[in-house]
Simulated assay, not measured.
Amino acid sequence: MISKRALPYLLLLPATVFLIVFFVLPFLQVAWYAVTDDGGFTLQHFETMRQDWKFMPALTNTFLLVIIIVPIQIALSLGMASLVTKMKTGRELVLYIWTIPLGISDLAAGLIWLSILDQTGFMNSVLFHLGVVDQPVNHLLYNDYPALIAAVVLAEVWRSTAIVLVVLVAGMGLIPKEYGEAAEVFGASPWKRFIKVTLPLLRPSLQTALILRTILAFEVFAVAVALTGTNLPVLMSETFHWQFDLQDRHVASAYALVLLAVSIAFTLVYLRVLRVREEERA
């Protein structure tokens, strides 16, 4: 018979085994490949990565996409979540429609937007039949850097904003209505109630959404490849390139560790900033 003291550990055992087998062991293997070769310990793989001409463009593009995508998604999700929580009827239907992109894979989303933005795509067909353009326009030219960035941002915002939305809707559902009603009685406008009441109480959910979405944004890959090919390198695409095209798992592991490091750094920043704000508020 299982004792009450051992039961919690037994229930956690499957999840613990899963994490060890599919996360801890692969991470240790990647770390090992990144700092070793046939001669033992080395940092040459990181030096090879640094000297790769695509490394700095990939790093810059990844950071730029994160800096653009995450704030847009947070702002959109806050507005959408506020609208959903205030709806009396049809809330479930609207939320269901808005979260449909969650069921679409990264690659499928990239291909959908490629069919829209391509020279022979849906957008050019509409613009041509409306007389806006005389001939199809290529919106994804290899040398049009702003257009390539905008295309990836547009596709990512459409595909993954629902992730943030679901977290924030759940968080807003936990906020007692009495707080907003009390602020309304004291004459607070809707905007001031949102800033002074909703946002502070939504901070734990907002923190979770920020961490989750930032980590996923750093891992942007399939959407960027589908829309831009190799014209807009990102860290994940370079990791794939070194692992499968160049068959160099050591440098690929170095790229993977860089991704892990920047993700952890951003997570710590979010935790630190929000913790300081909580202390100041207290």
Rank of each mutant, 00 (worst) to 15 (best):
residue 96 Y to G: 12
residue 71 P to E: 08
residue 278 E to L: 13
residue 225 V to M: 10
residue 36 T to G: 04
residue 264 I to E: 07
residue 178 E to W: 06
residue 183 A to S: 13
residue 39 G to N: 14
residue 144 D to T: 06
residue 159 R to A: 15
residue 264 I to Y: 10
residue 166 V to I: 13
residue 50 R to M: 14
residue 235 L to V: 09
residue 12 L to H: 01
residue 59 L to H: 05
residue 198 T to S: 09
residue 230 T to A: 14
residue 229 G to I: 01
residue 87 M to C: 09
residue 102 L to R: 12
residue 281 R to A: 14
residue 271 L to G: 10
residue 162 A to T: 09
residue 241 H to T: 14
residue 173 G to W: 11
residue 186 F to A: 04
residue 95 L to F: 15
residue 201 L to M: 15
residue 238 E to G: 01
residue 250 H to S: 13
residue 93 L to C: 03
residue 15 A to V: 14
residue 261 A to D: 02
residue 207 Q to E: 10
residue 281 R to M: 02
residue 186 F to Y: 11
residue 244 F to L: 11
residue 19 L to Q: 01
residue 141 L to S: 10
residue 114 L to S: 03
residue 279 E to G: 07
residue 244 F to R: 03
residue 203 R to T: 15
residue 228 T to W: 01
residue 235 L to Y: 13
residue 250 H to D: 00
residue 83 L to P: 04
residue 185 V to A: 10
residue 179 Y to T: 12
residue 103 G to N: 10
residue 71 P to D: 05
residue 39 G to H: 07
residue 10 L to H: 10
residue 265 A to K: 00
residue 201 L to H: 14
residue 257 L to K: 09
residue 5 R to L: 08
residue 189 S to H: 10
residue 254 A to N: 04
residue 270 Y to I: 13
residue 13 L to P: 00
residue 17 V to D: 05
residue 85 T to H: 07
residue 62 T to L: 12
residue 18 F to W: 14
residue 16 T to F: 15
residue 224 A to E: 07
residue 35 V to L: 13
residue 259 L to T: 07
residue 35 V to K: 00
residue 236 M to K: 12
residue 245 D to R: 13
residue 213 R to K: 13
residue 17 V to Y: 05
residue 46 F to C: 01
residue 251 V to L: 00
residue 170 A to T: 13
residue 258 V to M: 02
residue 255 Y to D: 05
residue 223 V to N: 11
residue 256 A to W: 08
residue 21 V to C: 09
residue 74 I to Q: 02
residue 159 R to Q: 14
residue 158 W to Y: 08
residue 241 H to A: 13
residue 204 P to M: 08
residue 164 V to F: 02
residue 104 I to N: 08
residue 39 G to V: 02
residue 238 E to C: 03
residue 164 V to H: 07
residue 27 F to R: 02
residue 126 V to L: 15
residue 272 R to A: 12
residue 202 L to A: 11
residue 56 M to F: 15
residue 217 A to R: 03
residue 86 K to W: 01
residue 278 E to R: 14
residue 257 L to G: 11
residue 22 F to W: 07
residue 81 A to T: 11
residue 150 A to C: 02
residue 280 E to V: 13
residue 216 L to V: 01
residue 55 F to P: 08
residue 238 E to I: 00
residue 45 H to C: 02
residue 94 V to N: 05
residue 187 G to R: 04
residue 151 A to T: 00
residue 5 R to Y: 02
residue 261 A to K: 01
residue 258 V to C: 07
residue 226 A to P: 04
residue 167 V to P: 03
residue 217 A to F: 05
residue 31 A to V: 05
residue 261 A to E: 01
residue 22 F to H: 02
